[in-house]
Measured scan of single mutants.
Amino acid sequence: MVYKIRDKETGKVYEVTIDEETNEITVYDVKTGKPVKTVNMTIEELKEAGYEVEPV
């Protein structure tokens, strides 16, 4: 599923895909559409880390 996340401190917005089964999150560069990095976190962990998470 695709989400937009926003860093509450910097205001930067990222587009991510989240595999609900493995909790693998792939972060994409919004301008190029290319993957930047992959992390292993849940949506709740993202929120605790200071991100706003919205489904696209």
Rank of each mutant, 00 (worst) to 15 (best):
residue 9 E to L: 15
residue 48 E to V: 08
residue 44 E to N: 11
residue 21 E to Q: 12
residue 51 Y to H: 03
residue 4 K to N: 06
residue 46 L to H: 00
residue 41 M to Q: 04
residue 36 V to H: 05
residue 41 M to L: 08
residue 35 P to V: 14
residue 24 E to P: 02
residue 50 G to E: 02
residue 49 A to F: 09
residue 6 R to D: 01
residue 51 Y to W: 15
residue 21 E to L: 11
residue 19 D to W: 06
residue 32 T to Y: 04
residue 14 Y to I: 03
residue 32 T to G: 05
residue 30 V to K: 12
residue 49 A to S: 12
residue 40 N to A: 11
residue 36 V to N: 03
residue 42 T to V: 01
residue 17 T to A: 07
residue 4 K to I: 14
residue 26 T to H: 08
residue 9 E to C: 15
residue 13 V to W: 13
residue 12 K to L: 12
residue 23 N to M: 08
residue 52 E to V: 08
residue 17 T to F: 10
residue 52 E to W: 06
residue 53 V to S: 03
residue 47 K to G: 08
residue 15 E to T: 15
residue 40 N to Y: 15
residue 24 E to G: 05
residue 24 E to C: 14
residue 56 V to H: 09
residue 1 M to Q: 13
residue 9 E to G: 09
residue 13 V to P: 01
residue 39 V to T: 05
residue 21 E to D: 11
residue 6 R to A: 05
residue 16 V to S: 01
residue 54 E to I: 12
residue 9 E to S: 13
residue 5 I to V: 10
residue 28 Y to G: 01
residue 7 D to V: 02
residue 38 T to Y: 09
residue 53 V to K: 02
residue 15 E to G: 08
residue 34 K to A: 11
residue 32 T to Q: 03
residue 49 A to C: 15
residue 2 V to M: 12
residue 54 E to W: 15
residue 44 E to Y: 07
residue 33 G to T: 02
residue 37 K to Y: 15
residue 4 K to H: 13
residue 24 E to K: 11
residue 2 V to R: 15
residue 48 E to M: 13
residue 13 V to E: 14
residue 5 I to C: 07
residue 30 V to Y: 13
residue 49 A to M: 12
residue 36 V to C: 15
residue 5 I to A: 04
residue 27 V to E: 03
residue 49 A to T: 08
residue 42 T to G: 06
residue 44 E to T: 10
residue 33 G to R: 07
residue 28 Y to E: 01
residue 1 M to L: 13
residue 40 N to C: 13
residue 23 N to P: 03
residue 17 T to C: 08
residue 31 K to N: 13
residue 51 Y to M: 05
residue 30 V to M: 12
residue 30 V to C: 15
residue 19 D to E: 05
residue 13 V to F: 08
residue 24 E to M: 15
residue 6 R to N: 04
residue 7 D to M: 02
residue 54 E to Q: 09
residue 53 V to A: 04
residue 55 P to T: 09
residue 51 Y to S: 01
residue 24 E to R: 12
residue 15 E to N: 15
residue 33 G to I: 01
residue 3 Y to Q: 04
residue 28 Y to V: 09
residue 51 Y to T: 01
residue 11 G to P: 00
residue 19 D to R: 07
residue 40 N to T: 13
residue 43 I to V: 07
residue 38 T to F: 10
residue 47 K to M: 13
residue 40 N to H: 14
residue 4 K to Y: 13
residue 36 V to E: 05
residue 22 T to V: 06
residue 51 Y to N: 03
residue 5 I to Y: 06
residue 22 T to Y: 06
residue 46 L to R: 00
residue 29 D to C: 07
residue 5 I to S: 00
residue 53 V to P: 05
residue 25 I to A: 05
residue 54 E to A: 08
residue 18 I to C: 06
residue 26 T to P: 00
residue 26 T to I: 10
residue 4 K to L: 14
residue 55 P to H: 09
residue 47 K to P: 02
residue 20 E to T: 14
residue 18 I to G: 00
residue 14 Y to C: 15
residue 7 D to E: 08
residue 37 K to Q: 09
residue 4 K to C: 13
residue 21 E to C: 14
residue 53 V to T: 03
residue 52 E to T: 07
residue 43 I to D: 01
residue 21 E to G: 09
residue 36 V to D: 04
residue 43 I to Y: 05
residue 29 D to F: 02
residue 47 K to N: 06
residue 51 Y to I: 03
residue 13 V to R: 03
residue 6 R to W: 13
residue 14 Y to Q: 01
residue 2 V to F: 12
residue 53 V to E: 03
residue 2 V to T: 11
residue 25 I to F: 04
residue 42 T to E: 01
residue 13 V to Y: 10
residue 30 V to N: 11
residue 33 G to E: 03
residue 34 K to M: 12
residue 55 P to S: 12
residue 33 G to L: 05
residue 23 N to G: 14
residue 5 I to M: 06
residue 48 E to G: 09
residue 9 E to I: 14
residue 1 M to H: 11
residue 9 E to Y: 13
residue 20 E to S: 12
residue 3 Y to G: 01
residue 56 V to G: 09
residue 32 T to A: 03
residue 30 V to A: 11
residue 29 D to W: 04
residue 10 T to D: 04
residue 18 I to F: 15
residue 14 Y to P: 00
residue 41 M to Y: 05
residue 54 E to P: 03
residue 36 V to L: 14
residue 40 N to K: 14
residue 14 Y to T: 01
residue 17 T to V: 12
residue 48 E to D: 13
residue 38 T to L: 07
residue 43 I to G: 01
residue 6 R to V: 13
residue 56 V to E: 07
residue 22 T to C: 08
residue 53 V to H: 02
residue 50 G to S: 03
residue 41 M to A: 07
residue 38 T to W: 13
residue 5 I to L: 06
residue 53 V to R: 02
residue 12 K to T: 12
residue 35 P to R: 08
residue 34 K to H: 10
residue 27 V to I: 15
residue 56 V to Q: 09
residue 6 R to E: 05
residue 8 K to L: 09
residue 5 I to W: 03
residue 10 T to A: 01
residue 36 V to A: 05
residue 3 Y to V: 06
residue 47 K to S: 09
residue 30 V to E: 15
residue 47 K to F: 12
residue 37 K to G: 12
residue 46 L to F: 09
residue 49 A to V: 07
residue 52 E to N: 04
residue 46 L to G: 00
residue 26 T to C: 06
residue 19 D to Q: 07
residue 39 V to L: 15
residue 10 T to F: 02
residue 35 P to I: 14
residue 3 Y to R: 02
residue 48 E to F: 09
residue 36 V to F: 10
residue 41 M to W: 07
residue 23 N to S: 10
residue 8 K to E: 03
residue 16 V to F: 08
residue 31 K to M: 14
residue 25 I to G: 02
residue 28 Y to C: 08
residue 29 D to T: 01
residue 21 E to V: 12
residue 30 V to W: 13
residue 10 T to W: 02
residue 40 N to Q: 12
residue 28 Y to A: 03
residue 46 L to Y: 04
residue 41 M to N: 03
residue 47 K to A: 11
residue 50 G to F: 05
residue 45 E to D: 11
residue 1 M to E: 08
residue 32 T to W: 03
residue 19 D to C: 11
residue 44 E to L: 09
residue 26 T to S: 05
residue 30 V to P: 15
residue 1 M to P: 15
residue 14 Y to W: 12
residue 18 I to L: 07
residue 39 V to P: 04
residue 14 Y to H: 03
residue 3 Y to C: 08
residue 45 E to F: 05
residue 23 N to V: 06
residue 44 E to H: 09
residue 41 M to K: 04
residue 41 M to C: 14
residue 2 V to L: 12
residue 19 D to G: 02
residue 33 G to W: 06
residue 42 T to I: 01
residue 52 E to H: 07
residue 25 I to D: 00
residue 5 I to R: 00
residue 55 P to Y: 10
residue 44 E to C: 09
residue 51 Y to V: 03
